[in-house]
Design a protein around this nucleic acid. Sequence first.
DNA 1: AAGAGGATGAACT
DNA 2: GTTCATCCTCTTG
Length: 211
Amino acid sequence: MAALLQREFFIREDVVQIAKDLLGKYLVSYKDGIRTSGVIVETEAYRAPDDKGCHAYQNKLTERTSTMFMIGGTSYVYICYGIHNLFNVVTGPEGIAHAVLIRAVEPVDGVDHMMTRRNLKKVKKEMVNGPGKFTRAMNITKEQNAISLLSKKDDLWIEDRGVAVETPQIIEGPRVGMGRSVAECSNWPWRFRIKDNKWTSKPDQVWYDWS
DNA sequence: AAGAGGATGAACT
DNA sequence: GTTCATCCTCTTG
C-alpha cells in the first residue's frame, strides 16, 4: 500500500510536473517518538536559474541556497520572516536548483499531537493550511534541512498510498508572497492545489480552474 | 560591522 | 484591512 517515493520520482527535470505529482502524496514526520502525517494538498514550483522568485535565481550559490543544488529527494527547510520554517522538496539531478514548496497538508496521522503543537483544542483548517503552519504541526524545523527524504531512518519521508489526483482535480494559480520586483514571475501559474479540498491555504485568492 | 528585507501568521481594529 | 513579531541571510561598505 504505502510505497516510499523513490529517487526516480524526484530527479526528473520538470519541477512543475513534480509539483503536480506531489499532490495526493503523504508527507510523514517522525519526531520525538511521535508520528504525524498529512496528504499534500498544495504546492508551488521554484526553478533556478530563470525564476526570479527562486532563492537560487541565476544559480546564485550561498550557504542557504546550496541545499537547492543537492540531488532530488533532499529536503530544503529555511526560516522565513525569522519565525516560520518553510519546507521544500529538492528536485532534479545534483547541480540543478529546483524545489517544490509544500504549502498545505490534510492531516491524517497524529492529529492530536498536531493540535497540541499548534495550541488548538479542536481540529480546524487553520491548523495546517499554510506553509509555516503545518511545519509547526509536524515539528519540521531547520534541523531537517538537507536530509534525505528517501529513508524512514530519517525524520521525514514521502509515501505514495495509491491516491491518484487526476488532472481535472488539479487547480493552478499564481504563487504567493513575492514582491513587485518578481511580479512577472509571480504570475507564472506554478501553484497547485487539489480541487474542493478544504485544507488548502488562501482559497479565496485567484485560481485558474481548467477542469 | 551594519542594515534591509523576506516563498508568513496572528492578533489586532 | 493593518500591524508587527522576530531573526536569519545576504549585500554593502
